[in-house]
Nucleic acid binder design. Structure first.
Lengths: 272, 272
DNA sequence: CTAATAGTGTCTATTAGACAGTATGTT
DNA sequence: AACATACTGTCTAATAGACACTATTAG
């Protein structure tokens, strides 16, 4: 059938001309939390953590998964992610970026569902008992080698473990895709989403200022360094770290004391 | 209704419980092409280019757009992109990466369509008249300043122009989103897709080896440098460039001569 | 010889890594 | 005093920027 104008074409358009599917969005909420120390003098150790919720319904009933949900026809993916994040944490104005769109044909047992994941970074301390009751923070422990990620998530009561392989798709450049090879405890393809997010964050912390979204307004350089260390998974040398960070922060006249050692100056993020 | 097992739940699952939409994939095919010089001695100038196709049907009939199409229910987004790329160029085994998923509610006048874009990099010289007839390469000329991208695409016969603003969403870090503010000639939100791709490529060329997907097997360092320059939009100093690239290439015993000047050694990509 | 690109040497400035030292609070 | 972290000085190694120079071809 021929049309002579766009208006005419649209008037006769059959929206069911192409097959349709449902879309969801999953949100990877990362934060850094303190773990109290036995020794009053020692700094509280930092942990990199992710927020999971326990599924109340089928499929994957009673398994842990990332907060997520179906998108509505009158909202963008980003709006859906923001809505779900607010539902789950009661937080607004949170840093969030699109991570990846996962479209494996059988990633959901119910039907064809494509899911776009978002990564959000928050300062967990801003959050005061506003979590929905089926949600819980899990510490992330990452062991990475040439070929695999071995990732353990623990929340004090439960310990979840999965393994993701780096499947090389380009022999010459060494570029790889991720493939879940072991996963007992997480729903859907969420081990993939989490691993993708960890890699992204690890990369971006090096060339952007996103860490500061996980920090309170005032922080010591020691705390900031701990956050870098826990995300990068390695120790950093003090002088090098301070040089690197110098242009991004500014000293305030506040200090933090009471730790059985020299008090530390409090800094804040400095925009350039 | 209560179920006592996942199987039972799935058996009774109504796939229309949630609203559905169609998904498409758009492919941003980048390459670098030679532009012949008047003077036989001068090197042929390189141009950064993108492949566009002219729409044959409504909507946006007769406008240029990125190659793309609807995804089928039995293929992933990546498979759809690969299929469409092969259709359009007859090329296989091409480097491709997911770029971004665009989900504006009204991005398509027909109905709600979410589109995931992919970026492919090819060596245009491998391509010999295998383009589909409504496709054409356009040179990309980018003028970027603090607040805008002014982008011109030209294929010898036509010149398309659009402008994209950097809309700052986070005052402190300077993070911005892209917003099309002028576009007469491209269909859909494709100015956004193209700009997103240009930014991504510009970033990734600095810390990955993806350029080599746009290079022939053997190339001179001068040619390689031109490609970097044309993508980064700035001149590079020879010694610095050669040092930077040194570990990524290896010299072959071939040379390229005939240009009225000292012949150049041919190099190839060296995997690490 | 000349125009044009190919390719190198080297000086300097900046940045990154490493280590050792000093400073200052609490108990 | 002892411990623990805060913070700095400095030496060295590696990297990046800049410029000037030499090399080699076709015509």
């Amino acid at each position: 059938m021929e049309y002579c104008s766009e208006e005419e074409f649209l008037k006769h358009y059959n929206p069911d001309a192409f097959e349709k599917l449902s879309m969801t969005t999953d949100i990877l909420i990362f934060s850094v939390s303190d773990k109290a120390q036995e020794n009053y003098r020692k700094l509280s150790e930092k942990h990199f953590s992710v927020l999971l919720v326990k599924r109340k319904d089928y499929p994957f009933k009673d398994k842990w998964c990332l907060p997520g949900g179906f998108i509505k026809m009158d909202e963008t993916l980003e709006e859906a992610a923001t809505r779900i994040l607010a539902n789950e944490t009661n937080l607004h104005d949170i840093y969030m970026e699109q991570l990846y769109t996962f479209s494996d044909v059988n990633r959901d047992p119910r039907m064809r569902i494509v899911s776009t994941s978002y990564m959000a970074l928050i300062d967990k301390n801003q959050l005061q008992d506003t979590l929905s009751e089926n949600a819980s923070w899990f510490h992330i422990i990452v062991l990475e080698d040439k070929k695999f990620f071995h990732i353990t998530l623990e929340n004090g009561a439960e310990e979840l473990h999965f393994e993701v392989a780096k499947k090389v798709v380009d022999e010459t450049t060494g570029r790889y895709e991720l493939e879940v090879i072991k996963n007992d405890s997480l729903a859907f393809d969420h081990p993939l989403v989490i691993t993708t997010g960890i890699e992204r964050l690890k990369n971006k912390i090096e060339y952007t200022d996103i860490v500061f979204h996980m920090m309170p307004k005032y922080f010591t350089l020691g705390e900031l360094q701990q956050v870098y260390e826990v995300i990068l998974g390695k120790k950093l040398l003090d002088p090098a770290f301070r040089r690197m960070i110098a242009s991004k922060v500014e000293k305030t006249n506040k200090t933090k004391s009471g730790g059985g050692h020299r008090p530390s100056a409090l800094f804040q993020y400095k925009k350039r």
